[in-house]
């Protein structure tokens, strides 16, 4: 080959590899590291102890994960939100936090074209932000609108929670805290600053407080009629 042709081949090969490599090689494989497949974390929310004027769980989540209103209206992120539900017959009103239900059969995971939405071995539903292409199909699929799209540039991000513009995000059940043996930030804040409505635990621990509480009171996920299951159970609905 002539030197010019050699140079062209080398340049094109280099350019091709530089283009392909980020997509093919740099996708981290340790997304599920730290998860214990023998455990099934869950939260029981007693809505009778959740008051309408309390947003301790929302504030704690924002502080922990580094999200919050950016003045974008309905395009603002909302990993957890407070919802008021009124019975039209009796007029009785309940207040409850709505977050990712960490479904047993998550439709967001089913529809995700790239597998960016996935279930950790311990059942927590997460988004691999290195693989998310920002198609928002998971948002269309979620029955409780628990997922948000990062619609603007982000700064002041937490080291454990990089938030990529153009990708989808949702409650992670504070996996970084769970993997360090701590409780989710919302649960901690609810006990400290709120009504103590949230009880965190492991569904596989038959003697644990969560299982005992679930045995004592009827509780269900949101939209239980869809048969998706879920790790966020509500008592008193």
């Amino acid at each position: 080959m002539t030197p010019r042709r050699t140079f062209l081949v080398a340049a094109l090969t280099g350019a091709g590899m530089a283009t392909l490599a980020p997509g093919l090689l740099l996708i981290p494989a340790q997304a599920a590291a730290g998860a214990d497949p023998a455990r099934r974390f869950a939260i029981l929310i007693d809505v009778t102890r959740c008051s309408a004027d309390c947003t301790a769980c929302v504030t704690a989540c924002q502080a922990e994960q580094g999200w919050g209103p950016q003045g974008l209206g309905a395009a603002d992120p909302h990993w957890v939100r407070k919802v008021e539900a009124t019975d039209p017959t009796t007029g009785s009103t309940l207040s409850l936090p709505v977050l990712c239900q960490h479904c047993d059969n998550p439709p967001c995971v089913d529809v995700c074209p790239t597998g960016a939405s996935f279930v950790r071995p311990d059942g927590i539903v997460l988004v691999d932000r290195h693989r998310c292409i920002g198609c928002r199909f998971c948002q269309m699929a979620c029955p409780v609108k628990a997922r948000s799209f990062v619609a603007a540039p982000q700064d002041d991000q937490r080291p454990h929670m990089p938030r990529g513009q153009g990708t989808v995000e949702a409650c992670t059940l504070c996996v970084h805290r769970l993997d360090a043996g701590r409780q989710p930030a919302c649960v901690e804040a609810c006990g400290r600053d709120g009504g103590g409505a949230m009880l965190f635990g492991d569904l596989t621990d038959p003697d644990g407080p969560l299982v005992r509480a679930l045995a004592a009171r009827a509780a269900s996920s949101l939209r239980a009629d869809l048969g998706l299951g879920g790790r966020i159970r509500y008592a008193g609905l």
Binding site: L20, D110, V111, T114, I133, V150, V168
Partner: peptide, 22 residues
């Protein structure tokens, strides 16, 4: 219109078999 159109290649090489999109 994708949030990350630069990751089109990801969609080509990582396909979730349960996704109608894929």
């Amino acid at each position: 219109d994708l949030g990350r159109p630069d990751r089109l290649l990801v969609a080509m090489v990582h396909q979730n078999p349960t996704s109608i999109f894929a």
